[in-house]
Write a protein that binds this DNA or RNA. Structure first.
Lengths: 109, 109
DNA sequence: TTCCACTACATAGTATCACCGGGTAGCGAA
DNA sequence: TTCGCTACCCGGTGATACTATGTAGTGGAA
């Protein structure tokens, strides 16, 4: 992954994962797969798990342990009310930043 | 500044500053002021100076010392060829990320 | 003169975050 | 048994923005 992308993901990857959980609950391995599907092909697995630990500790998600047919039990994360608010705040922040950056891109030419 | 914004700026602030320099050369204090004008009202002065040191060391900008009528001499930064390429790469990375995030925002509803 | 406000640059220390490399464990197929 | 896939976890690293503070030069007010 390019260094630029790595740095740019800081702060946004969290929102991306929460947005995925907003659609429907999912477990870590699944989230990683979904990220890859959506174009984030180089997100490291370890990164996702670390992120999930953080959002769980901050109380943004609820966790349920579900046995799996294949491999160890899954930890299924779902966005709770607090997480929903946090996600909305994320979108506001993103909008703010994106608008200003787009503006800069225009002004540059 | 919100923590979300702080984290989201990581990786993007650099591109923002380079984009400002792409329009015309500027010195640190001036860049800080321009950022505030453009809505980034809470960027700390020290953050900008630290960033300028980094981009200078990476050879993305040229520097000229210019005496000021008021206060100490200014260090005027201008984007060079290498910085121009880097900025283009930044825009590509930004576009990629922004598109995927917008897509998520749609899919969420 | 003395003091303050504004301009202008600089830096040491802190927190956060994504990545790297590796590890643990359960299950089914060759 | 061994391999491959599923699934989770962790310690250490590098990069970045922020906080708080300091240094200097200039000009105007008290």
């Amino acid at each position: 992954m390019s260094k630029q992308m790595t740095e740019m993901l800081k702060g946004t990857l969290e929102g991306v994962v929460l947005a995925i959980l907003a659609v429907q609950p999912a477990y870590g391995y699944e989230i990683t797969a979904r990220l890859r599907e959506q174009g984030f092909s180089d997100i490291a697995e370890g990164t996702v798990y670390a992120l999930l630990v953080r959002v769980e500790q901050r109380g943004l998600v609820d966790v349920a342990k579900v046995p799996s047919e294949k491999g160890p039990p899954r930890k299924v994360y779902s966005l709770n009310a607090s997480g929903g608010e946090y996600l909305e705040e994320f979108w506001r922040t993103w909008r703010f930043l994106a608008e200003r950056i787009e503006q800069l891109h225009q002004g540059e030419k």
